[in-house]
């Protein structure tokens, strides 16, 4: 908004360079996954098919509810639906640094009805450290989880992917929804 005209022209020129690539329909093969940061140290992937939407909400929009586990932050109204907001890191029992935030980065996932969840509750809002973006993965790339991950994490894993020499876990949303912490009520 406060960009000077010079930079505007520069960026326009650059856009013109990029535009052909942008509208090129080079459909890459593979399934799409959303890359997330559970904590500053740990990234994870979620299948995009499970993702309803990603949103940033101010903290005051989340209405806390008493007498609930600490991992359940509260409820939020999104698109005329009341969603339960869950801190993923706490669910996964990963030590997260309590950082005071003004916004929550939230990914809304929809769950399989098979899990026994109510119609209303087949959507779950997960708060994350950060949302990185979408990557495509070939099914072959997903390997079985190594021992390198913590034991607490294992129940929620679908597999792991090695990218840039780093292995990233692929999380199973339904598993998260059925996590004992949540269902201990």
């Amino acid at each position: 908004m406060s960009a000077t005209p010079l930079t505007t022209t520069a960026s326009t020129a650059r856009l013109q360079q990029l535009l052909p690539q942008l509208f090129q329909s080079d459909t890459q093969p593979g399934d799409r996954y959303l890359k997330l940061d559970i904590s500053p140290d740990l990234s994870a992937l979620i299948a995009l098919a499970d993702v309803q939407e990603s949103v940033q909400l101010p903290t005051h929009m989340v209405t806390p509810i008493p007498n609930l586990p600490a991992c359940i932050l509260g409820v939020v109204n999104s698109r005329n639906q009341v969603l339960c907001v869950v801190d993923l890191a706490q669910v996964l029992q990963i030590p997260a640094r309590t950082v005071h935030r003004q916004h929550y980065s939230i990914v809304v996932v929809h769950l399989d009805s098979t899990t026994g969840a109510t119609e209303d509750a087949n959507l779950l809002a997960l708060t994350l450290h950060g949302i990185q973006g979408i990557i495509r993965l070939q099914p072959e790339e997903i390997e079985s989880p190594m021992s390198e991950f913590a034991a607490e994490l294992t129940p929620f894993l679908r597999g792991c992917v090695v990218r840039d020499g780093q292995s990233i876990p692929v999380l199973d949303v339904n598993a998260i929804a059925t996590a004992p912490i949540l269902n201990s009520l």
């Binding site: 799409r32 959303l34 995009l48 309803q52 939407e53 990603s54 940033q56 980065s105 979408i134």
Partner: peptide, 16 residues
């Protein structure tokens, strides 16, 4: 940039 990222994710979700 963050918001754009989120929007792009949402867009791809919607596109899917």
């Amino acid at each position: 940039a963050l918001k754009t990222n989120l929007l792009s994710i949402n867009a791809s979700v919607e596109a899917a």
